[in-house]
Design a protein around this nucleic acid. Structure first.
Lengths: 111, 111
DNA sequence: TGGCTACATCAATGGTGGCTGACATCATGC
DNA sequence: GCATGATGTCAGCCACCATTGATGTAGCCA
C-alpha cells in the first residue's frame, strides 16, 4: 500500500489547462455548459467575430473539450463533461495530496 | 428553486487557470503537493534557474496558490489546498451542468 | 434549376503579452 | 566580511490572440 505522497500523481494536463486559460474560451465553455449552441449564438453572446470564435472552437475541439453536431447550415457545439471531470479530479487529487503533506508537515530538510 | 441550468454558475477564475497553465508552474505545484520544498530543492528537481523559479513562484504567490515560510537562509514553499479545491469544484460544477444539458438535450433553436 | 445569401472554416499577417536569461541588490549564517 | 540563498529589474525572444481575406457548403427563393 502506498501512502498518498508516494502514490503516482496524475497531474493535470498542462495543454488542457492552457486551452482553458483563455478568457474567451472559458466563457465559451461556461455558455456551452448551460446550453448547446451554434456559432451564431456564441457571436451574439460574446460579441466576438465569427472567425475568432471559429479559431477558439477549433482549439477546444482539438483538445477534446467540445464536439460538433451539424444541423443544416448550422453547427451545434456541446461540451464533453468527462474531460472537465477528469481535470477536476486531477486538481482534487493534487489538493488532497497537498493537504496530507501539510498536515503531516512533510518537508525536505534544508541542504 | 432553480434548475441546474438557471442556477448561477461560479466559473473558474481565468486568471487562476492561466497561472496554472504554464508547464513549469504546474510542475512546481505537483512537486509541492508531495513535499514542502525551498527554492534550492526546486532548482534541483526542475533544472531551471533560480531567477526563473523565483519569478514563477512570485506569480504563484500573488495568485494565492502557494505561501512562504522562512527557515533561516531558506524559504519553504507550501501549497494552499483550498485554492486547488475551489478550482476543482468549479470544474466539477461546470461538468455537472454540462451533463444535465446534454442529457436533457437543451438546445437553443436555430435562428 | 440556377443563383444567391448566410454560416462556417481555413490561411496569413500584425501586434501584444508572457517566458526566459543576465545582472544587480538585499538578507542570512558562518 | 564573505559566501550563499532569494528576490527584483530589465531586455530579448517567442508563442498566442485578433483581424483580414478567401474558400467551401448548405439552405432559400425566383
Amino acid at each position: 500500500m502506498l501512502t498518498s505522497a508516494e502514490a503516482e500523481l496524475t497531474p493535470p494536463s498542462a495543454d488542457l489547462v492552457r486551452v482553458l486559460a483563455d478568457p474567451l474560451r472559458l466563457r465559451i465553455v461556461s455558455l456551452l455548459a448551460r446550453e448547446t449552441l451554434c456559432t451564431t449564438h456564441l457571436v451574439e453572446e460574446t460579441g466576438a467575430r465569427q472567425t475568432n470564435l471559429s479559431n477558439h472552437l477549433r482549439v477546444l475541439r482539438e483538445a477534446g473539450v467540445v464536439e460538433t453536431e451539424p444541423c443544416g447550415r448550422f453547427t451545434y457545439y456541446k461540451l464533453r463533461p468527462e474531460v472537465l471531470d477528469a481535470l477536476a479530479g486531477a486538481f482534487t487529487e493534487l489538493a488532497g495530496t497537498a493537504r496530507t503533506t501539510i498536515e503531516t508537515d512533510r518537508k525536505r530538510p534544508c541542504p
